[in-house]
Amino acid sequence: MTVDQLPPAPAGSPPPARPGAGRTLIRGLGQLLITAGVVVLLFVVYEIWVTDLFGAQKQAAATEEVDEAWAAAAQTQAPQTDTVVVTDPAQLVTDPRERTPTYQTLTGQGFAKISIPAFGADYQFTIVEGTSDDDLYVGPGHYPESQMPGEQGNFAVAGHRVSKGSPFNDLGLLNSCDSVIIETQDDWFVYRVLPMPEEIPTWSSTAPTRPLCADVSVLPSPYEQTVGREITLPSDYAQILPVPGISDATVPADAQRLITLTTCHPQFSAAERMIVHGVLTKSYAKAPGFLPPEMGEA
């Protein structure tokens, strides 16, 4: 920046000579570098704020769409004459084995909502089908080849950690037994984060002291590699298969009902992936005005 500054001319002396070619070149180069710096700063502004704005718009549109679809489905399924408000959660508890998805999914469109009370009572995103860049701009995306919410196997979801709403920014802060609640057209599915690797040896003694962990146990064989959170390689595709870590896409007859969340790791990098696994602990049928009690665990 100092290349433009000429030494102060003594009073009365003739005006300084016209800048030479070298000076013009250096000045041009300096301006180019400053311009490049401003462009890089603008890119940071774009990634941190502007993509959040664009993503929030897409997310709001997807949420509106799924709300309308659910409202329409509720109309056709049960043309109710009177609304019975059920407030006792025990009456709505369902057996996930008897719940099969009655909805269709379309790539890029929302079909479920994810809530994580540990991230705040207002943490909710609509999950879309697909994990392409366009899908993930809208919100967390379901791996289409993985199972659906509540099913046996693995309901796997990818989400951005940086930019575009950053839905999975805080996955590293989840503790074991924190609830991850999935709402679909007809059901609430409450998953809980599995024990962390360092907690597994003492789980049988520590879990009974934590009320949230009542239904969470260390998974039996063949789930030795399925833990609450792990850092792995981007090529570790087996993490989202029915039995995480085992390269087989078929769902075993006695398979657990899991959820898997994936995002990038470390923050701002693509070197690794952060994986969070949870297990289904409860499910409820949806009813007007009913929210699962787990939603209050903020």
Binding site: H160, T232, C264, A270, I275
Partner: peptide, 13 residues
């Protein structure tokens, strides 16, 4: 944007 590293959040084969 697609070439930015933090854009990759999914696992694949």
């Amino acid at each position: 944007e697609p070439w930015m590293p933090f854009n990759s959040v999914s696992v694949d084969a």
